[in-house]
Simulated assay, not measured.
Amino acid sequence: MFPQLVQEIMALGRLDWVVTLTALVYVVLSARNNAWCWPFGIVSCALWAYVSYGYGLYSDVLLQVFYVAMGFWGLYNWQRGSEEGGVMRISRMKKEDHLLYLVVGIAGGLLLGYLFSYTNAEATYWDAFTTSFSVLATIMLVRRQLENWYYWFVVDLAYAGLYYSRGAVLFALLMVIYTVIVVYAYYTWRKQVKE
């Protein structure tokens, strides 16, 4: 199993590697609460949209386009978006917000899955639910809400399985790495909330 996985990873094209490396830089910088994460995220997601189309993951294509737009908002918001005119600080969410996000995430996943079930998309509902909750987690990340990392942990694990099932081995491995970085990110951000 492991030698085959290594062979599959080594056989991937340059574009897969560029997407993977820029995505890793994005996640590491966002975990460190560094606004430079956003330009790397924009580049990575624009290329990722193209690659996801090739894997037949249409909800993921839409998600990557959304990420590109959110990258510009995130960059602005993290640098100049606070009400006081300074850099936005990390905040905590209310319990009611979590309930709202769960309801919206489930409804969004069902709707997206239903819409794409009439196309030749692959893993329709799996792709739709990961997309729906990724949108919500991204909104939380842009708002610098600490709890975004809870959502990313679950979403990244789900994506690891989704990408692996589609033969996107490098992206599946990237999602596993993301899951580890998410744990680091949560503890890094949590320390900054207490300061």
Rank of each mutant, 00 (worst) to 15 (best):
Y125T: 13
V154N: 03
M175F: 15
R143I: 01
V43C: 09
Y118P: 05
V154C: 04
K94D: 12
L5M: 12
A69V: 15
N34D: 14
T22Q: 07
V51I: 14
G54S: 06
K94R: 13
A160E: 02
L47C: 07
I42W: 11
L100Q: 12
F40C: 12
D127F: 03
M10T: 15
V27K: 04
D97W: 08
V183K: 12
T179Y: 01
T130V: 11
L47R: 07
N148D: 07
G71V: 05
A168M: 11
M70C: 03
Y26W: 08
D156I: 14
A168W: 06
Q7I: 03
Y187A: 08
V65M: 06
A160F: 06
V27M: 11
G85V: 04
Y186R: 04
V154W: 04
V135I: 14
G167A: 11
A31Y: 04
R92Q: 11
L111C: 08
L146P: 04
A185Y: 02
V103D: 01
Q4K: 12
L110H: 02
C45W: 00
V169Y: 15
V27R: 04
R144T: 10
S59I: 00
V176R: 03
G85R: 01
A160K: 03
C37E: 01
S30I: 10
V193C: 06
N148Q: 15
R190E: 15
D156A: 13
Q145M: 15
W152A: 05
C37M: 07
A128N: 07
G105C: 02
L47T: 10
F2T: 14
L99C: 12
G71N: 08
M70T: 08
V183E: 06
I139V: 15
A35D: 13
V103I: 12
F2R: 10
L29F: 11
